[in-house]
Amino acid sequence: MISFRSLFASAWMGIQHDLAWTSPPAALVLRTVAPFASAMTVSIIYWFGVTHSGLTFDPARLAFILVGSTLYAHVASYAWVPTIAIAEGKNLSVFPHIYLTARSTALYVAGRALSSFAISSTTSLAALAVAYYVLSGFLQTTIILTITPASLLMLAVALFANIPAALGLGYFLGAYSLYASKFEWSLPGYVAGLLMVFSGALFSTSILPWGVSTVASYLPFTLFIQASRDALIYGNLGDYLTSLGLCILGGVGLLLVSLWVYLAAERRARRDGVLDRRLA
């Protein structure tokens, strides 16, 4: 089974490479800091905005923001891994050799994204938990989150259900960095920023203007975050399953299209001789 082996080895390499710069537990802890801090920022913005505008503080709304902010960060952090895996691979000159071993580097890219999915699932959930406790103590309220085996299972399923969509986004970005090799280092900012605005992470997509809100509400990422909220906050199984189903459907569609784009970009890259081009 050549493909399973490749996928596994790539995922293994991803974990090694992402955590090897310091001891793995320390790296995991440090990787929790950023999502924790950004979750704190948006939660405090909510608290601050509400209390100083004479509005009533709504713990469910805080939960909405908290869950959304950790999960968009989770998606952003593994969706751009393909880009970085390619850019880094070219810099270290390993990329062309990876290309020569298999039919396509798509498998390697998937492996790297999956390893990052594992790391980021751990760190985002840790960030969510820590932010939950810190905020509860800090603001002296009970943030309304349902933590039961069933709700956690639903969350886990949602996390997995979002993989096709995130990988799809990853292949799009990867296609770009296969070809152009200059600006990929600032792509994560774009990915995070776009998800922040359009995936209903911090506010309902309905406040976006015109048709944008409709499109945004059917993005697989929006549906993923919604399904997670259904699991952790609202506990409505019917809504959860609907969001989940649509998320998978859209995700698989996105994945197929983007894989096609990626493979086309790879062929083009071979024609133009950029597969082994290093950054200037």
Binding site: V42, I45, Y46, F48, G49, V50, H52, S53, L55, R61, I65, F183, S186, L187, G189, Y190, A192, G193, L194, M196, V197, A201, L202, F203, S204, I207, L208
Partner: peptide, 24 residues
């Protein structure tokens, strides 16, 4: 490329303020 994060994150947080009714 470099305006991506500043523009989008400030847009998102502006909308957050707006959405909770703290537009001021």
């Amino acid at each position: 490329v470099s305006i991506g994060f500043p523009v989008l994150s400030s847009l998102a947080l502006s909308l957050l303020y707006y959405s909770i009714g703290a537009g001021n």
